[in-house]
Amino acid sequence: MFKRLPLPDTSAQKSVMVYFDGQQVTARDGDTIAAALLAAGVEACRTTPVSGAPRGPYCMMGVCFECLVEVDGVPNVQGCQILVKDGMQIRSQHGARRLG
């Protein structure tokens, strides 16, 4: 859906390695989790608790809560609000968030 614009700066930018459902994803330093996943071609990052329908980021500004993912074991994290960090373990969230 999205690609990096071929900008001079982008190549010079430090890259960050994260994991999405165990797969390595290269992100740009300064990306939010949701932006990094979209750049890596991830369309859906969770399924809904009601019907199990796939959902992906929608508003990118913290309002819609569609980009909820599990980050380093913490569920219900808004992917559009948190920046990627090297080695971050991101998991898609299926149905309702896990408790405890």
Binding site: M1, F2, K3, R4, L5, L7, D9, T10, R28, G30, D31, T32, A35, A36, L38, A39
Partner: peptide, 8 residues
């Protein structure tokens, strides 16, 4: 924020 644009 990320220099991302539609790929199609």
């Amino acid at each position: 924020s990320a220099g991302l644009a539609p790929s199609a």
